[in-house]
């Protein structure tokens, strides 16, 4: 699957979409910010109507499900300290916390990572269907991230 300068191998049976969000004004966006790409990948059926950070989808997750969100910010964010990490991160089970969900849901957990690639600023947000299963689910996330390519 490739679009918007983002390419990823979607595993068999997974849902995925790379789209451009309709409005670009967020807390971290600068004035005049344009709409930016968003990527969703999940090992469960994604509803057609869902939020950029997976609202409407995470509520459907079972304990063995996970959702990977890649959310791009404006290029002016790439130089800020928050996005100073370079390259697509590798996630670890210790990064996940139930309160890191956009909206905490019983049993689930999430983690956020901010980074830059080639002058592009991203937030990687991962939601797990079960905090208890994080050690089993995290390797699946890293498999995806290992084949994620971003054009600079």
């Amino acid at each position: 699957m490739r679009s918007e300068g983002i390419e990823v191998d979607v595993p068999q049976g997974w849902d995925g979409e790379i789209y451009r969000r309709s409005s670009g004004i967020t807390a971290l966006s600068g004035p005049g910010d344009q709409s930016r790409p968003v990527m969703h990948m999940a090992n469960f059926p994604l509803p057609s109507e869902r939020g950029d950070f997976g609202s409407g989808a995470v509520e459907l997750m079972r304990s063995d499900n996970l959702l990977v969100v890649l959310f791009e910010y404006g290029p002016e964010s790439a130089g800020s300290p928050l996005f100073s990490a370079r390259g697509v991160p590798t996630v670890s089970a210790g990064d996940f916390h139930p309160n890191a969900m956009q909206r905490p849901l019983p049993g689930q957990s999430g983690a956020q990572y901010f980074f830059s690639v080639g002058g592009r600023a991203f937030c990687l947000y991962v939601a797990l269907g079960s905090h208890l299963f994080r050690h089993e689910l995290v390797p699946k996330v890293n498999e995806i991230l290992g084949v994620l390519r971003i054009d600079g």
Partner: peptide, 19 residues
Amino acid sequence: DIMGQSLQGSAVQVGVTGH
């Protein structure tokens, strides 16, 4: 699995196998 485009033109894959 179904690969194509959404109505809005975004790249989409719908997994129909493996679950």
